[in-house]
Nucleic acid binder design. Structure first.
Lengths: 147, 147
DNA sequence: GTTAAATAAATTGCGCACAATATAGTTGCA
DNA sequence: TGCAACTATATTGTGCGCAATTTATTTAAC
């Protein structure tokens, strides 16, 4: 592609990705309002529902986020009573984030959210799998380059 | 899919999209550092390089953003001398954002950015087209629902 | 011509993202 | 044992993203 063409807005490959990611967060917002959670808080809890307890680092690796984002987010979840933030007695540098009973209880209220969102997306199962796979691949390549 | 499975972190379709969008912004950052631009500022200028002059509303429609995001961003571009922000004399409600000569000059320095980024992405042309098309479709559906 | 409804942009407040830096704790090794 | 290198998290500052609200202007109905 000519340099001229490559600088045209509508030829950008990644901007639709960027805009779609924002649109997804917008689509989740009304569904999560009942739970008083943001999208990122919801995704964090989803990890903790499965693992019960994780370090900040482990959360960051799963979500491709650093402590600058996670520390304040986890403090907000703590202030809502959904997680605890204890130091690991084995290694005092590590914060172990654990889901509380109240946080675990939210899982039931969240059960119908994936279904509701799937309806909004307007993509079929095959397209959903393509999005997921392509983005995971993109992510893997870009994550690799940082290292 | 069972409700149980649908709440598993690794079965989420949209989170890779979200994380990939962040990763793209990260990948652009070092390339844009020379131009002293953020990713969103770069995309905004790209529109203005093509259209010379646009209202805040028109920019917002192209980028799926509202004035709460654009107004401060455009003020930052103005303070760098890259755009002007005049009121439309035909309709005083409208702000006409125009690219300045200095803003136009940046286009030359940006010419090699698309090529550099394409190398980082690690996806072939066909995959790039799939990402673009799928995200545009997703965006169209979600934008439609807001209306 | 007034005025009510509609429209465009700006403002406010909160929650991400993340670079850069700081702090505290651990490990390895001379 | 002492201490340098490393690691995990926290802090600070800037820039989005967007809901909710406000301000200014235009349009349309009467």
């Amino acid at each position: 592609m000519k340099a001229e063409e490559a600088l045209r807005f509508h030829n950008q490959v990644c901007f639709p990705l960027y805009a779609a990611a924002n649109a997804v967060v917008r689509a989740y917002r009304p569904l999560l309002q009942d739970l008083d959670l943001t999208y990122l808080q919801y995704m964090t809890l989803m990890l903790l529902w499965e693992h019960k307890q994780m370090s900040v680092k482990a959360l960051g690796q799963q979500m491709s986020l650093d402590s600058g984002t996670l520390t304040p987010l986890l403090k907000r979840l703590e202030s809502k009573g959904l997680v605890s933030r204890a130091r690991d007695t084995e290694d005092e540098r590590v914060r172990l984030i654990a889901v509380t009973p109240a946080g675990m209880a939210l899982r039931n209220k969240a059960k119908n959210i994936p279904g509701q969102l799937a309806c909004s997306l307007g993509v079929d199962a095959a397209q959903a799998e393509t999005i997921k796979h392509t983005c995971e691949q993109l992510l893997a390549v870009l994550a690799d380059e940082q290292a």
